[in-house]
Write a protein that binds this DNA or RNA. Sequence first.
DNA 1: AAAAAGTGTGCAAACGTTCCCAAAAACGTT
DNA 2: AACGTTTTTGGGAACGTTTGCACACTTTTT
Lengths: 338, 338
Amino acid sequence: MRFETSTIKDIAKALGLSTSTVSRALRDRYEISEETKKLVLAYAEKVNYRANPIARSLKERRSYSIGIIVSEIANNFFSQVINGIESIAYDKDYHVIISQSHESYKQEKLNVEHLASRSIDGLLIALSSETQDIDYLRQLYAKGLPIVFFDRVPVDFETHKVIANNFKGSFDATEHLILSGKRTIAHLTNSENLSITKERLAGYTAALAKYHIGFRPELVKYCQHGGMHSAELEQAVKELLPLKPDGIFISSDRLTTGCIMALKKTNPEVAHKLAIAGFTNSNLVDLFSPSLTSVKQPAFEMGQVATELLISMIEAKRPVTEFETRILDTELVNMAKR
Amino acid sequence: MRFETSTIKDIAKALGLSTSTVSRALRDRYEISEETKKLVLAYAEKVNYRANPIARSLKERRSYSIGIIVSEIANNFFSQVINGIESIAYDKDYHVIISQSHESYKQEKLNVEHLASRSIDGLLIALSSETQDIDYLRQLYAKGLPIVFFDRVPVDFETHKVIANNFKGSFDATEHLILSGKRTIAHLTNSENLSITKERLAGYTAALAKYHIGFRPELVKYCQHGGMHSAELEQAVKELLPLKPDGIFISSDRLTTGCIMALKKTNPEVAHKLAIAGFTNSNLVDLFSPSLTSVKQPAFEMGQVATELLISMIEAKRPVTEFETRILDTELVNMAKR
DNA sequence: AAAAAGTGTGCAAACGTTCCCAAAAACGTT
DNA sequence: AACGTTTTTGGGAACGTTTGCACACTTTTT
């Protein structure tokens, strides 16, 4: 801000102390007499002193801020994750800077690099559905930037990761469809290179296998852009319907809503006959028609856990070498009766 | 970031120049020989030099970042506004920092002050539904922090403002209900102290007046927390239904979805008989059941306009004294036939 | 040929902190 | 009373920039 606020120097001058003393009093560092400390604190309070975080950042070579990359904040899952992140970050005096990749690799890379140049202390990232090459992240990581992945995580990157139990979530949802009598269950899913895609596919096939239903690859449709383009979704739906599925399991928030929308638009009569189960964290799911069974991820908690792990990395005195992958359980809700 | 990158000093040393020369070459300032400039630029490119924004901020006493306060990012209207803000901000090399008030005055004030201490160059804010006292904003403004309000704006604060044409949006929605034969139209709205509440109420009453329908105050229900608490909504619905409305006009995104949810939960049979019209920017509105007529705000454009105004204030050489209030038209979509 | 004007560069201070190092003050021990 | 400890304070450099000023050199003007 261009307008002046009081600085440590001002306080020092006013109190006849040195800036070092004032700084120490304020940060409660080293040995400092109770008396002086109180004096400084009282005066600082009086003039409403706020430390200049910019100056502090420059000096300490860290910014007390962490970067977040998600594909879209207008996505319930991600906005809930962000709320979780904030809840922890603010507690520990970190600020968060949110960037959106819009499922674009180029945008993601650009944003990450921008954040890195803004001196973030660490990065929380869910990869875009387009992302295949994470070399740029490796480089930053090698240079010392702590990174924690969540939701969409790369397999071959050694760091902390936080994911939902995608396998179980998918298994449960698929099993639910099977138990309500469906046998031809389509699977609409994200870009093939995402970790969540693989895990969710595995849950789906495992459920089929448990009930001795043959896996038919043609029932699985991938969406490269994660549902960002409605044309992509309509195409997938168009290809799927001739196969006469009686149920469909959809593997992401955006795809779920997008798919129902596409169904309604292109084949409204089918939409209501098809049993639908899908990942979504929308809190509007109760309003949807056709209704669906939804797999809800513990988004808020995922954000919290990821942030705790990240901050532990940031504040570790020595390089962290032991990494963990936290897996949090999903929840199956709003069982549609049909 | 704790890891080292090359600095202006490094470049200067490597090239046998002074830091001033390098700085000037990089920023293309003052007279500097083409030759030296090319040399520096080439070398900077080679070592992948990135100016340290922190140092620059400290020196220039500005951060090239703007703060945003919204009640909730998990709200389609606001996330679209944010996208609009980002589209302009990034173009002009500003970074944005997003904070959520969660419709709490306390949280809002805390966040604003936090942002201010983080040296933002300007603030874009939509007031929380609880906010009555904006003295803290006045103080910051008086100290020189440029502020632009959008959506929820205070009346008695002289600065740029960007709003939707709330009057017309409400008028159109209410008229739509009237034209489809409704006569007892309830109005569910936000906290009474919000600007949008007043404007939308005015549109509602004007439409009633045009068709010679008497205004019945008991048909208007205010929600202090803007739909953040479902109990509040259910209570409002409970009080409204005995009055036997045949239509309802709801005046905000969160209230619209929340109200339908409450209706469905408490009186599912009524829910489908009532004609519903409401403000919402949800892109899932096509999936809703009961369906509704929605008033959509030009959220993206609002964000863009607000940002342009803010940046013009930030970059003005002399204090701005002429302020404008931009009013953008809403759109009535998805006319429910009933 | 000297003075004036123009051009390119470097020096050094400043932005507001933190923190190493040394100096001063307070205290205790003999 | 002189010394050693311990506790508290101050001086000043550093973080990476930007920029006013001075200086040196070149070109133009008289």
